[in-house]
Nucleic acid binder design. Structure first.
Lengths: 182, 182
DNA sequence: GAGTACATGTAATTAGTTACATGATTGA
DNA sequence: TCAATCATGTAACTAATTACATGTACTC
């Protein structure tokens, strides 16, 4: 389906960007909440998009001689991106989740081992939720208007928080059920 | 990380099962809510587990001459599985989500195109949620006790419903925000 | 001067998908 | 007898990760 292709085209369409900054976006910025790719996947894909004439770049010299490539989308690239954006896809496969897999097999664990697992997960998801909520509060004083980049940022960040909330609620229900065994 | 290996070992540890039934479990049964693999990935992995002596099989003749392989876990396989089960892993990467990706880029769409997308997603997730809720109601009259296979089934099914609820709630918030633009 | 972040790539391997391939059984 | 499902596999390809590889710039 080449989804990475469209993730890159969209990012570059937002504003000119380097491969390094694209990788950072996937690793720790807002996009990390719904897509990811290592730099070793990003650079070859950028080369491919260049070959397909969907993007172009300008060489920038940073400091004395360090080169960086600032990528810009071409009209052809923009057209392909918007075309993809409007497509309606069937619901994809449910995402894989190792912790749910462990939960499915929880009858092979003692109750105390499973409780330990649940507390550990709860801690991690609470931490992540707090981080996301702080990001939201810092970045948005009000709900951005639809049609702006900020709206996209806001919507996916809110979605990520709601996803964490739901995961945390599920973990608590599991904890409750385990602790109420006789 | 070879997670598929442990998914297979766990399933086989639950009760002896054929490769065909494992594939069905990943494609449309309860495991599909948190893991998946095509039969073309399952069969080679089963062969590998055989080589590693973690599982063994018994040939069953179905009808006149159709052969099927009923896999059983070995003591070595059980030990490796339980060892994996107790391990605590860091939170993995956030799952990829194409619809969230499209939402992130929603400023490249007209409001009506984005609304159409949201309604389409809403329909799909509502359908899935209804299906999951029906499954839960049909299979469980009461909350199963911890320590049974049924508890694992129940916990992950409940988690899947909560995940759908949360996704639906997010889609509704987005719809609200788009329709309230001036 | 040392450590961290910036910046860009390739190579080897593992994971996963799509397509190819074959044949038996069951129920309408 | 026809279609759906049962049942098992391999081949070719795409996607993604881990490891290798190199060098610059900035801050303390």
């Amino acid at each position: 389906m080449r989804t990475l292709k469209y993730a890159l085209l969209g990012l570059i369409d937002r504003e000119p960007i380097t491969g390094y900054d694209i990788s950072k976006e996937f690793e720790k910025r807002i996009m990390a909440n719904f897509w990811h790719a290592k730099h070793s996947q990003v650079y070859p894909e950028l080369k491919r998009l260049l070959d397909e004439e969907l993007i172009s770049f300008e060489l920038i010299i940073q400091g004395e001689k360090m080169e960086k490539k600032l990528y810009t989308i071409t009209p052809k690239g923009h057209a392909e991106f918007v075309d993809w954006l409007l497509q309606d896809e069937p619901l994809g496969v449910t995402p894989k989740d190792v912790f749910r897999l462990r939960t499915f097999f929880s009858d092979f664990m003692s109750a105390s081992d499973f409780e330990r697992h649940l507390h550990s997960q709860l801690g991690k998801h609470n931490f992540k939720k707090d981080y996301l909520e702080t990001s939201l509060d810092k970045s948005f004083k009000a709900i951005p208007k639809y049609g702006t980049k900020e709206f996209g940022d806001y919507a996916v960040l809110l979605g990520a928080i709601m996803r964490e909330d739901s995961y945390i609620a599920w973990l608590k229900v599991c904890l409750e059920a385990v602790s109420q065994r006789e």
